[in-house]
């Protein structure tokens, strides 16, 4: 009797599965047809795309992280300003440093309703052999914001600028330990290596430890390590309190703001190198031109809006709008440079 029940249950679900599969198939055919016919119509009157369903924005990380915050703020501002009327929802797909979300979006093929937010890890993760998909497998839509790296030392440190630090590293690489929150070959490591290399340090000998449990700043403050490679925003409060010194940041020119404007760039210290922690939005691999243009325009409008300027200010983000074409070119160049760097350190795959 009970076994019969299980059997029934399995049969029933199997039945539903088959039924829905065929439904889905019909649906997707229909929608494919629709979109085709729409495309045809559209291309006649200039290829306009207008969303007719709700738009899903994937944050490849957990709630409260950088990707999640960006996605939620952007979606919220789109709604509040009415720049995009359609319903937009943020979905968290955490795991594999983003790889799980990328694999998910990649399956969406040409859907104009599945976007995701991304940043440099979409280069680091595939280059480290941890994802089959990189930025070139998706459609870059628009970059929205930029953040920069900062290299900080304890306030008591003997180093007062990047050149002193790098000189010490050239002389005795074992004497300096760098800490960051990501694994070697990923952002906090590579942003430091990139500047160090431009200063002539033997990057193979850089001693780097990773602390992913939130103890990196602690280790700097208690003197366990010498240098903390992180984002600019993370350093501001400690600098104000006089606990740490920022030796250099990776922006082109000095940032605006209270403490921020005191941070010297690497460039002004004679090290001709920068690193941008960019953040922008992507679509599935084969998004069509009309949809790309639609989103490009909407993101630009958002980036220019007063409301979003407020949000940038709130989080200390810098404006960095790039359209589809500029973005693609920027990403390709960045990736090449990172690849060279990883090869040099011996981490390339």
């Amino acid at each position: 009797m009970k076994q019969l029940g299980t059997l029934l249950f399995i049969c029933f679900t199997a039945f539903i599965l088959v039924a829905c599969n065929s439904n889905n198939a019909v649906d997707s055919n229909e929608s494919a047809n629709n979109s085709n016919s729409e495309d045809n119509v559209n291309s006649e009157d200039g290829g306009k795309f207008e969303p007719t369903q709700s738009i899903e924005v994937v944050a490849p990380g957990g709630a409260g992280g950088g990707w999640d915050t960006t996605a939620r703020e952007v979606v919220k501002t789109f709604g509040e300003t009415g720049i995009i009327d359609s319903n937009m929802a943020v979905i968290n797909k955490e795991g594999g440093g983003g790889a799980i979300a990328w694999a998910y979006i990649h399956k969406k093929d040409d859907s104009p309703y599945n976007l995701f937010v991304s940043s440099p890890p979409i280069m680091f993760v595939p280059l480290n052999g941890q994802s089959d998909y990189g930025h070139e497998d998706f459609t870059p839509l628009s970059n929205m914001i930029a953040d920069y790296a900062a290299f900080a030392v304890n306030a008591d440190s003997e180093y007062n600028d990047l050149n002193e630090l790098f000189a010490a590293m050239k002389e005795d690489p074992e004497s300096v330990t760098v800490i960051g929150a990501s694994a070697p070959g990923s952002m906090d490591h590579i942003q430091f290596i990139r500047i160090a290399k431009a200063a002539g340090v033997d990057v193979k000998k850089v001693k780097y430890v990773s602390d992913q449990d939130g103890g990196a700043l602690t280790s700097l403050l208690n003197g366990s390590v010498d240098v903390y490679s992180t984002g600019v925003a993370e350093t501001v409060e400690q600098v104000r309190a006089g606990n740490i010194k920022v030796l250099g940041i990776t922006a082109e020119e000095r940032l605006e703001g209270d403490v921020l404007s005191d941070f010297p760039t690497a460039i002004e210290q004679g090290i001709d190198e920068t690193f941008v922690n960019w953040r922008g939005f992507f679509g599935p691999p084969n998004m069509d031109q009309a949809a790309i243009e639609y989103y490009e325009e909407k993101f630009q409008e958002l980036s220019d809006s007063e409301e979003f300027a407020e949000i940038r200010k709130k989080y200390g983000w810098n404006e960095m709008y790039l359209n589809h074409e500029e973005y693609t070119q920027f990403l390709d160049e960045e990736k090449e440079e990172i690849q060279t760097l990883l090869d040099e350190v011996g981490l390339g795959n």
């Binding site: 009970k2 299980t6 029934l8 249950f9 029933f12 679900t13 829905c20």
Partner: peptide, 21 residues
């Protein structure tokens, strides 16, 4: 079938049949 058929339907089916079983 959790993602394919959806949370509500699958959970309903599961609870009903497994409790009955």
């Amino acid at each position: 079938f959790f993602e394919l058929i959806g949370f509500v339907i699958m959970t309903a089916i599961f609870i009903f049949f497994s409790s009955w079983f």
